[in-house]
Design a protein around this nucleic acid. Structure first.
Length: 359
DNA sequence: AAGACGGGGGG
DNA sequence: CCCCCAGTCTT
């Protein structure tokens, strides 16, 4: 089936220019040192919605601790969450371990090399499947991420809204024909590298672009108007109160978050949502007594934390307090920990910084 | 088709 | 303050 966007398009010339540019100008990145499918896989999961510079140190540490699929399959969940601490989207690493365990058990430790099989793995969507298949196995499969949609929307002047899920399929359809059959790995990575280094969201560097002669947006001077992307709705905010409670041994009370949902299974200090004008000290004391069976005396506010998610903001006032009566026993999800032990637990980033400031 | 799910950097 | 980033899963 002939692809409309590819009519009068020099596909071969485009492939050659893009691949040659990538082979000569690609960045030196740790996950490019090996084509091992497990290593490629880990890097692709980490890179989802996350910048290259952020990922580099996490990737290196992760590979030292979990060098093989078997090593990751056998790891404790607390260890993998700790390795992911600060990276965000924590379900990525839990899904990765689930999927790696399936690879070890069902595929004898070998990452499958067909889109059909690899797509059944937890956390491996259409982009990641294409990335692993092309980079690790040299298969001519499309790998459409945000970069690729931006680059191709400019090259072919595609005005579909890239915020809509259905739009991704338009780019995949083009790529099934356009992807280089000689070097799918360099072609796909080249498209992404181009988006990261040259064909950037604002003010693309068309004068430096290796494929500007193939670019219809550049020919018409409309590259800055593309891609079309609808806005997300704006944020809402919530008032919160949190408390650092210490017992007579100067230990701090922490609890594990629920199994699912926001920041699932990470650790935190006790906290509660409040309304404007509430007496937060009083609410915290009551909550500690009712939910934790611990009576406390609140000393005062020690910090104010603004916790920003994509769609909501938590404004958290953090208080310090001491136990006045008996302290309840520990459970699997509630612990009294020495300050020096806190670093062993995985926290959300703002809480990590707070715990680092405790003495 | 729309929300949920993190965090950091840049204009 | 808003947008963006090597997306996927759930509803």
């Amino acid at each position: 089936m002939e692809q409309q966007h590819l009519r009068d398009f020099n596909s071969t010339g485009f492939q050659i220019d893009l691949v040659n540019w990538f082979l000569e100008n690609q960045r030196d990145l740790p996950w490019r040192e090996s084509k091992d499918a497990y290593r490629v896989w880990v890097s692709e999961i980490m890179l989802q919605q996350t910048r290259v510079e952020t990922v580099i140190p996490y990737y290196q540490a992760f590979m030292r601790e979990f060098p093989t699929a078997e090593a990751l399959a056998e790891a404790e969940e607390d260890r993998i969450l700790k390795a992911w601490e600060g990276l965000g989207y924590y379900s990525r690493v839990r899904n990765l371990q689930t999927a790696v365990r399936e690879v070890v058990e069902k595929y004898n430790g070998v990452v499958p090399d067909t889109r059909e099989e690899i797509s059944t793995l937890k956390g491996v969507g259409p982009y990641t499947a294409g990335a692993i298949l092309s980079i690790a196995y040299g298969k001519p499969e499309p790998a459409v991420d945000g970069n690729v949609m931006r680059v191709l929307s400019r090259i072919f002047i595609i005005e579909e809204d890239i915020a809509k899920p259905a739009t991704r399929k338009i780019f995949e359809k083009i790529l099934y024909e356009l992807v280089s059959k000689e070097n799918p790995s360099a072609f796909n990575q080249g498209l992404m590298e181009l988006g990261a280094l040259i064909c950037t969201p604002t003010s693309p560097g068309c004068l430096l672009c290796p494929v500007r002669e193939h670019c219809r947006a550049n020919q018409k001077g409309v590259q800055a108007e593309l891609p079309i992307k609808s806005k997300k709705k704006k944020q809402t905010s919530k008032q919160m109160a949190a408390v650092v409670v210490r017992n007579e041994k100067n230990e701090v009370l922490i609890e594990k978050r629920p199994e699912t949902g926001l920041l699932a299974r990470l650790w935190q200090v006790p906290n509660i949502e409040t309304n404007i004008g509430d007496n937060q000290e009083e609410i915290l004391s009551k909550m500690m007594l009712e939910d934790f069976d611990v009576s406390i005396k609140v000393g005062g506010q020690i910090q104010q934390v603004e916790h920003v998610f994509s769609h909501l903001i938590w404004n958290i006032n953090v208080y310090e307090a001491v136990v006045t009566g008996k302290a309840s026993a520990e459970t699997a999800t509630r612990k009294w920990v020495k300050t020096s032990e806190i670093e062993q637990y995985a926290f959300q980033s703002h809480i990590r910084r707070l715990s680092n400031s405790l003495s």
